[in-house]
Design a binder for these strands. Structure first.
Length: 117
DNA sequence: TAATTGACGTTTA
DNA sequence: ATAAACGCCAATT
């Protein structure tokens, strides 16, 4: 694996995801915005897929803007994500949750000071 | 080198 | 509420 500017962008994303607190969720697009990559929601999904397992990122707390799990229903990862969310007291119905109730509201000051430039 | 693929989002119908 | 049509672009094929 090559350390490059791309890796840097991914690490930005990883830092953001790592900050999502238990019992809360954040959309791919929002993570991208917070990481300074507007319009790059798809890149967030790639970054999560490429993330080393040792980082133990709370990847299950990242869902799409419609409040739904993005893995196809009944697939192994879909089921795991749903179980992980429920284990944090998040109500999930048909892979969908109520965004208004669980969306993470990041504190900008903490955010800025937590991310390396 | 070129084409396809996605753990997505917004706009439009 | 649902769905299609775009836009996006690194990684994969």
């Amino acid at each position: 694996m090559q350390i490059s500017s791309q890796t840097s962008a991914m690490s930005q994303i990883w830092h953001i995801v790592a900050m999502i607190p238990e019992g809360k969720v954040c959309s791919y697009g929002k993570v991208a915005d917070l990481a300074g990559l507007p319009g790059r929601a798809r890149y967030v999904s790639r970054a999560l897929k490429m993330a080393p397992g040792e980082l133990k990122l709370p990847w299950h707390r990242v869902i799409n803007s419609q409040g739904k799990i993005s893995f196809a229903e009944n697939t192994e990862p879909f089921i795991e994500q749903m179980q992980r969310l429920r284990s944090e007291n998040i109500v999930v119905n048909r892979g969908k949750i109520k965004m208004a109730e669980y969306e993470w509201q990041p504190d900008l000051a903490t955010l800025v000071l937590s991310i390396p430039f």
